[in-house]
């Protein structure tokens, strides 16, 4: 039986929902687990993960962890892991993927990324992970005693609280890597948006290159109506019609909402890798042969500039 350490991702004093998928992973191993909440505001954020049946909620709240500089986070994660943990679990977000290998190298641990499932086979944990842009799943084991994994939010459901309150323990901040002295955080440039995060949205409205300069003009009303996050294909981002952080695909975000609209997206394998786990997929495209229709539950062959406004009107009618 392994002892699992789940590293919660804290952004602006809140625990990212992806952390709950990492907790699901920990539960699926059948082993006891603790959750490490580290970051600025971790003390308050820790309350969000105290009812999930963790042995302990470990808290490291420090002003030096306000910005996501992995040379500052990795030493504390490694230091905590050394206190009797066998498997360190992070979210497969840009933060988790940045820091996890660094932690693994410190611990002399093997690292497996983007885990989509786990099972114990004869006492050994076997990890399932997508390879070749999700065109195959590989099953692997890590041969070192200590192991580090990142877990895909789109593949493991968010854990539900199990009640109670895990005991809390403060853990000290470890000294930053000497290399941190050679990293200066300048800032995060993000589009101001009231929309939900792509990883947390129930509905995503994604657009492709076909939208041209009318990307926002056409998709905003639909997204607003549904409280959806906006997504985009690589082609739409490359052409500058949508900001890069909206990109869904092998490069970009991997998502699995309840409802995914692919508007004017042809469905390159690169894009499918990021959304084919969605529960219900709707595609609107004027090319009836577009590959997106092979994964769509509901396909509408139509001119999107006509169909999307119609869809908005129709939804407004049905909500009235």
């Amino acid at each position: 039986m392994a002892n699992i350490l789940v590293v919660a991702e804290v952004v602006l004093g809140r625990v990212k929902k992806a952390t709950l998928s990492a907790i699901t992973f920990a539960r699926q191993t059948g082993s006891p687990f603790s959750v490490l909440v580290l970051g600025t505001g971790a003390r308050d954020a820790a309350a969000e993960v105290e009812a999930f049946g963790a042995q302990k909620v470990l808290v490291c709240d420090d002003a030096s962890l306000a910005d996501q500089v992995c040379e500052r986070f990795a030493p504390t994660i490694a230091e905590v892991a050394r206190k009797g943990f066998d498997v360190v679990v992070v979210t497969a977000s840009s933060f988790g993927k940045d820091v996890a290998p660094r932690v693994a190298a410190k611990l002399g641990a093997g690292y497996a990324a983007d885990i989509a499932g786990v099972a114990s086979e004869g006492g050994t944990l076997v990890y399932k992970r997508p390879v070749f842009a999700g065109n195959a799943f590989a099953f692997c084991e890590i041969t070192t005693a200590t192991q580090v994994v990142s877990v895909r939010q789109s593949e493991l459901p968010a854990a539900e609280p199990s009640g109670g309150a895990s005991p809390r323990e403060e853990v000290p901040l470890a000294a930053a890597d000497p290399a941190a002295g050679r990293v200066e955080y300048i800032g995060l440039e993000a589009q101001k948006s009231e929309r939900p995060d792509l990883g947390e949205a129930r509905v995503i409205v994604s657009g492709g290159r076909a939208l041209k300069e009318q990307f926002a003009q056409v998709l905003d009303p639909l997204a607003n109506l549904l409280g959806a996050a906006l997504g985009a294909s690589r082609a739409a981002c490359d052409a500058g019609y949508a900001p890069a952080e909206l990109q869904v695909g092998q490069t970009g975000r991997v998502v699995a909402p309840q409802l995914y609209f692919a508007i004017g997206i042809s469905g390159a394998s690169q894009h499918l890798a990021g959304m084919k786990g969605s529960q219900t997929i709707v595609a609107v495209n004027k090319d009836a042969e577009a590959p997106i229709f092979q994964v769509a539950d509901y396909g509408l062959v139509a001119d999107l500039f006509v169909a999307v406004p119609q869809l908005v009107t129709e939804l407004q009618k049905s909500q009235a």
Binding site: Y111, I142, I281, A288
Partner: peptide, 18 residues
């Protein structure tokens, strides 16, 4: 540090409708 044991193809999505 990593040992691959086996692989499988992902389940294909069931065909949708137009």
């Amino acid at each position: 540090r990593i040992k691959y044991l086996r692989a499988e193809l992902p389940p294909s999505r069931k065909a949708g409708i137009k």
